[in-house]
Structure formats: structure tokens, C-alpha cells
Design a protein around this nucleic acid. Structure first.
Lengths: 146, 146
DNA sequence: ACGATTTGGTTGCATATGTGACTATTGATT
DNA sequence: AATCAATAGTCACATATGCAACCAAATCGT
């Protein structure tokens, strides 16, 4: 009759997500003083190249207020810069500064390393199952890439 | 050189977890006025039967401050009750009231239904991969059940 | 038996987040 | 061109969360 939290998919995913997040957080937070929205905006910017805040939000799955605050913080830090768009004066193009580029590069290596550290604890066959499961869930929840 | 957010495991898990959470949140939040910690404490209590706050926190993967606040809220609502423990006067045994029991039962059905709605969008073979992946990740991150 | 340590739980405070309202601008309709 | 709707982004406010300090009771070491 009960639900058994342990077997409830949303709970399991949330707990795992939390565990993974805890594994990588020290890198961007303790070592670089970023919070998660800031880290994500930076990563999105690296993925996309110069883009608008809206595009960064879509790519990093974050609400526009989170993006807005993250952009301001990164701008104050001089890791990113904005420039007006002549065609549309509502939006601004955001791009990384050289300092930001360097910081991002320094950030990526340990991030990858943490991810690898987790994946290394999983047998290859299970890793394949994981990739398959992720794709299936992404399709099922409609978060599919853009 | 970049990281490609789309392929970064912690990001993918976080985004999926968020999507699943959004799918079930309306049930406990809009329909019952609970927040997530409260819902989890209730579910943990149903799983474990009368328990201490610490046990509920362990079972629901929540920090003790979250549990403390959730317990107070549920108590004010008269869905749970506390009783002193003679053997150890620091802790209290928390248990569901009849009202809480009924509410929990009303909650479980739609929760299951939402979960099923998601799983139904996944092919059986992919569901098997999902279960395998979850077990592997749970082992790899040490969140294994208690 | 007594001080030091640990454990169960709560509280205060700083920070993070979600929501809705708001400004400015653009695009669509007529 | 005048209006209406949609879009980009910011802001203010209420709520949620994490962290450290804290209290009280139990346990440990001597």
C-alpha cells in the first residue's frame, strides 16, 4: 500500500543527482567561488559561443532570473562581457573575456576528472545501460537537447 | 576542449531529476499544500512506521534542519504526532495520526500514477537499462539503501 | 563520579530560489 | 500609424535552504 521511497523513481533520481552534484560542487564553489547557476552559464557560454541570456538559459536549463543574476555576477568578475545588439535593443550578446576563458579552462579539467572518478566506479556494461537509460529518460521527459 | 553540458553526467542527471520532480510536484504541492521535505517525511514515516526525526532524515536523504521544519509543519497540520521516549529524553518518536494516514493514502495513488505515466513512455528494454543504471549509480555514489 | 565527547534536535542568519510584476522593445494586425 | 500581443531582461518580495551555533541529554574515559 505504501510507496517505498527507495523504489520511487523521482526520489531515486533526485538523490543521485544530489550525490553527483556534491561530488563536483567543490570544484566550482570552493576552488573558484562560483555558485551553480554561474558555473552553468559559463559552461553554456563555452558550448555556444557569444549568445543572448535567453539562449544561455535554454542551453543550461535555467530560469531567466537565475541567468540574469549569474550573468551580472560573472560580469562583475570580468569573466564575461555584454555588448548591445543593434538589430534588437532588448537583448545583449554575452561573451567570455580572456580571463573568463582561462578560468573556464582551469575549471574544466577537474570537473571532467570528478566525472571520470564516478564513471570509473561503474562497470563498462553498466555504463552502457546508463547511457541508454539517460537517452530514454531524456526522450520521455522531453528535455531532449536543443 | 569544452565540456559540452549536454554530455556531462551531473548536468544530465540534474536536469532529469528536475523534470521528474516537476511532474510530481503538483500532486503534493498544489493538491495538498505540502512542500518537498514535508512530502518526503510523510513518505518516510509510512515506510518506516513510528521513528525518530534522525531516522526519517536518513531514510529520506534530508538534512536534519529540513526534517525538523517539516516535522513541525506536519504536526501543526495534525498529520503526525510526537511522543516522548522514556529511554532517551533527547529524541521523540514521530508517528502518523489517522488524518495523516488518510492524507498519505490519498497522496500515494496520484503519485504512483505520475510515475507510471513517465515509465509508460519508456520501452521495456530501456526500463530494464534504467533499473540497472540506477543500481549501478547508487552503488557508485554510495547512496545505497539502508 | 566527573569532565570531555557525542548525539538528537532546534534556532538564527545569510544566501538562494521561484513567482509575478514591471520596463522596454519588437512584431503582428488592422 | 495605432493598437495589441509577444519577447528580452530586471527587480522586489516571499519562501526555501545550508550552515554554524546552540541546548539538553546521554555516553565514554578515567
Amino acid at each position: 500500500m505504501g510507496l517505498t521511497l527507495e523504489n520511487f523513481l523521482p526520489y531515486r533520481m533526485s538523490r543521485l543527482s544530489e550525490a553527483l552534484s556534491a561530488e563536483i560542487r567543490p570544484v566550482y564553489k570552493d576552488a573558484f567561488g562560483l555558485n551553480r547557476p554561474e558555473w552553468r552559464v559559463l559552461a553554456a557560454l563555452a558550448d555556444l559561443g557569444p549568445s543572448t541570456a535567453t539562449a544561455l538559459g535554454n542551453h543550461s536549463a535555467q530560469h531567466k532570473t537565475k541567468v540574469s543574476r549569474a550573468v551580472r555576477a560573472l560580469e562583475l568578475r570580468r569573466w564575461i562581457r555584454r555588448e548591445a545588439v543593434v538589430a534588437d535593443r532588448r537583448s545583449e550578446i554575452i561573451s567570455m573575456t580572456d580571463t573568463g576563458q582561462r578560468a573556464y579552462c582551469d575549471l574544466v579539467a577537474p570537473m571532467r576528472e570528478r566525472e571520470a572518478r564516478i564513471l570509473d566506479r561503474i562497470a563498462p556494461a553498466d555504463r552502457a545501460a546508463l547511457e541508454r537509460a539517460l537517452l530514454a529518460l531524456e526522450a520521455a521527459t522531453g528535455v531532449a537537447a536543443g
